[in-house]
Design a protein around this nucleic acid. Structure first.
Lengths: 397, 397
DNA sequence: CGTTATATTTACACTGTGTAATTACTGTGC
DNA sequence: GCACAGTAATTACACAGTGTAAATATAACG
């Protein structure tokens, strides 16, 4: 009658343990065993294996009480990963360890209208510089992640309308021998918030991470899962007002057409290029007069309306919002709740839905991509990417 | 380099094999092995086990070619399951086998306004009759499924606003010793379409099954999965028109407020009670004059709009619609496509999204619940429900 | 320096599977 | 009717991954 859990492959188990270490930043074995639903014996075996591969370290620690745990397990900081972020204003490369320490950073200005040729030129130069740096130190980069705004949309990327096949081919060639993960910037942001020890993330448990910036994009963060913890959630182009404002996607009435930075720029009286220059923090909250705030509140109601609709389809008990809405005064942010109340079944109820805000992480690039790379590395079990074909088969099954 | 698939528990493997048999209606071992991604050796072992428990049968079959397969494996028709359906007009009980054969049917009229007390009285009587029938024949019902319209909504059931805890307690007592699954009617319908050999279901692969009747509800049918193949998809209360028509959920502008039977009743000129009497087939298509049809088309556009929104959040490449829209002429149904085109990113494209229609399954009650019971039975591996605690643990892990 | 309490490792057993050898079965040709 | 060919079905064996429980290590405390 006792529950023998569903068996896992070694790769999965390794991934679970490694992800736990990445998320907690280090733990004693008992905590690992508890959180990964493994026995201490299994943890012991897995850790012995990981240690022999130099993926984890154990730092001796005075026991807090008689017979207490003695060694704190942490991810090895010998493992190098790289993060690359393309944002609307620059292309940044970074190399660091699994703890999020950046040992190398290189940032280049990049136009929001970057075309694919220019991108390749820019990328190739920076990639070569990074590789020179790693080669000099004899560092082997185990995983690279590149995050791009708008990436992953089936109907093409509305921000950088590039050919994805060409992009992949180019990257494979420009970063030879390094396993590469391509992802949406929002996913990387979510990874940043989840794994960075510096951000005090307001929720535990599954939630929706919503970013409202040049686009409006979401990620469902599945806290329970160590693999496939992030799944993109295309909410920005939900039509909430039939025959409403024209959106860049060609439709009318999308959430993005009401709440993106571009959409609110006329309200705050800045033109699009100015906004792009200032980045996500373009709102000077204190300088807004009351009718501007009222107009922005109206837009936040729209956001809430769409959010409520989304939560009807995909129930989650907490939502974390980042981007310009998180810079607004609390009174104004309440407009989002009003919108949710109009669409979420049963209305907004703080006992059933927690809504919180985190500041957009400006100037941290390419930290988010670095964390995402770390996530990719650990969720592959820390095994060589050559075995990825193998892994892919497993995931499918 | 060869991919060893993620290991499965015996329960999972059994479930996979049994579900395959349920879906195909019987297969040769080679096909089972292929579709379940097991080796023939494993299939052999599992089938030996299942046969010893009388869950499967092998019927000898002349080999189609020299050395060809000789025994066709089918689910045993000794396994009894029961389906109970509450619809807006009646409560039906049925007992049958895993092949969908109904050996016992009992249907009682039930008011759409049935309150919980009346329901319990009605249910108890019918349950006793069913049990008398099974007892007389010495039949042990291995799984019961009860489907209720509107069931499973977090914010309570808008159709039968009952106390769910009380309902569960009551059912546990009224059906002693029988494992019970409670589900939404739409989920049962989806199971019916998936498993009934009589319905020619227009799609293969993951899809959304959408039913538009008294409510508007969807199910995501995950064809690849043998367990958790159905997940409810609450689409009816997506707000598509701010400050639009009042919905019974209290909000304004929900899809349901535009497209449910009750919502279109003024258009077709029938009052609500008349509609309830006629059931889902209330539309006499040939008798509709052109302005009524135009008005209904407008409602179908709304439905499509919401559907496109939903598909942005949850990409699927095919949708099957049942309910009154499937009774409309093809020209009118195209309005749904027009609506989708307004909201689905990239617009409607028949190469990326297939839309099809199936007639609502009227008068088949309680077949849908019976198939759902069969599904529940097999996805539990055909093991005694006593081991369910065990199973639950596994599922969580 | 032993005692105590707990952490960590290890030996062994058990489940679930795949591989490959073995056995069973069926139609064909003589 | 019977050997043969060709494939199906079973089985013996090996191996991965894990849990249980016994054995061993470690640190605080007296």
């Amino acid at each position: 009658m006792l529950g023998r859990a569903a068996p896992r492959s070694r790769r999965q188990t390794r991934a679970t343990v490694l992800e736990n270490l990445l998320r907690t930043g280090g733990a004693f074995r008992s905590a690992i065993a508890r959180e990964t639903r493994l026995t201490e014996a299994s943890v012991s075996r897995i850790l012995a294996e990981l240690r022999s591969e130099n993926l984890v370290q154990e730092t001796r620690h005075p026991a807090p009480y008689a017979g207490g745990p003695t060694s704190l397990v942490t991810l090895s900081n010998d493992v190098a990963v790289a993060g690359i972020e393309l944002s609307n204003s620059r292309l940044s490369f970074g190399v660091g360890d699994l703890g999020g320490t950046l040992d190398y950073v290189d940032r280049m200005p990049a136009s929001p209208q970057l075309d694919q040729d220019e991108f390749e030129r820019l990328f190739r130069t920076s990639a070569a510089a990074m590789q020179a740096w790693t080669d000099k130190r004899g560092i082997a980069v185990r995983q690279v992640a590149l995050s791009i705004p708008g990436y992953g949309r089936e109907a093409g990327n509305p921000i950088y309308p590039w050919d994805v096949t060409r992009l992949r081919d180019f990257l494979g060639e420009a970063l030879p021998g390094m396993p590469l993960a391509l992802t949406n910037s929002v996913v990387a942001q979510a990874a940043f918030h989840r794994y960075s020890p510096s951000t005090s993330y307001p929720v535990a448990g599954n939630h929706l991470f919503l970013f409202v910036g040049h686009g409006v994009a979401g990620v469902i963060v599945n806290e329970a899962a160590s693999i496939d913890a992030f799944s993109a959630f295309e909410i920005g182009h939900m039509v909430i007002e039939r025959n409403g404002l024209l959106c860049r996607c060609g439709h009318r009435g999308c959430i993005e057409a009401y709440t993106s930075l571009r959409a609110i720029s006329p309200i705050v009286g800045l033109d699009a290029s100015e906004i792009l220059n200032r980045g996500d923090s373009f709102i000077d909250v204190h300088g807004l007069d009351s009718d501007v705030r009222a107009a922005l509140r109206e837009r936040l109601v729209m956001l809430g309306l769409g959010l409520g609709n989304a939560l009807n389809l995909h129930p989650l008990s907490s939502v974390v919002i980042s981007g310009w809405p998180s810079l607004m005064p609390e009174d104004d942010r309440a407009a989002i709740i009003a919108g949710i109340d109009e669409s979420l079944l049963g209305g907004f109820d703080e006992r059933r839905l927690s809504l919180s805000f985190v500041a957009p992480s400006i100037g941290n690039d390419p930290r988010a991509a670095l964390y995402y790379a770390a996530y990719c590395f650990v969720s592959g079990g820390g095994l060589d990417a050559r075995a990825d074909a193998h892994a892919a088969l497993e995931e499918i099954a």
